[in-house]
């Protein structure tokens, strides 16, 4: 067995050595045109695709006045979160807090059902779809130009006060001014429509709101 292996090995050497020798000879006679004498020490290139900051989400707060039909106007403060799907459309979720007072009815000895005290908290939240209908630029003097857009917006949500919830539609419009790439101010007018039976009769109410807001994009 070992003999046979040795024999095979010897045969192999016999065949290979002349072949290698002839190969070396031809290499010597015709040196390749592009022989690399020095191996360059190249750093491996980083092929990672660079990260790009995408600013499609807008978050911020707003303050303003909310007027509730049959009741009164009170200050309102809220938070908004928007996702800009295209340059035209955006989806906005908002939640806000205000106060509703039955002072008028209470002063006439007719407190409204559900009002434990004169002033009750009012909260609403909604999801809306907005469309930038009039995009543009505004100019402040010679040096400043800021992108802006007038948008129309509408959606659905819930309004809660005096232990009652009301399914609410909202629609309106607003004006957004981008102070720079990531900071914007909003002026927004909205009508919140819901049915209420607090005054004994179930009827549709229109509740207007005007707000000023600030948002950041990230």
């Amino acid at each position: 067995m070992i003999n046979r292996l040795l024999l095979g090995f010897a045969c192999g050497i016999c065949v290979c050595v002349p072949l290698l020798a002839s190969a070396a000879e031809t290499a010597d006679k015709n040196p390749p045109a592009q022989e690399q004498v020095i191996q360059p020490e190249l750093d491996r290139r980083d092929v990672k695709l660079p990260h790009i900051d995408v600013d499609d989400i807008e978050v911020g707060f707003y303050v303003g006045t909310l007027s509730i039909e049959n009741f009164n106007s009170q200050s309102v403060k809220g938070l908004r979160l928007a996702y800009h799907v295209t340059e035209d459309f955006f989806i906005e979720g908002a939640t806000a807090k205000s106060i509703i007072s039955d002072e008028f009815f209470r002063s006439r000895a007719f407190p409204i059902t559900g009002f434990d005290k004169q002033e009750e908290d009012l909260t609403y939240h909604n999801i809306s779809l907005g469309y930038n209908v009039l995009p543009g630029e505004i100019f402040l003097g010679r040096r400043w130009a800021m992108a802006s857009a007038f948008y129309v917006i509408g959606g659905v949500g819930t309004t809660k006060f005096a232990k009652q919830s009301h399914s609410t539609f909202n629609f309106g419009g607003g004006y957004r001014i981008l102070l720079n790439d990531w900071w914007a101010v909003h002026l927004d007018m909205r009508d919140y429509v819901f049915n209420s039976d607090l005054l004994g009769q179930n009827k549709r109410t229109n509740n207007f709101e005007a707000t000023f807001g600030m948002t950041v994009f990230f």
Binding site: P50, I52, D53, V54, D55, D56, H84, V85, T86, E87, D181, F217
Partner: peptide, 11 residues
Amino acid sequence: EILLRKTDWFK
């Protein structure tokens, strides 16, 4: 250089 992206627009 790409500084920023907003929807389909690159600064």
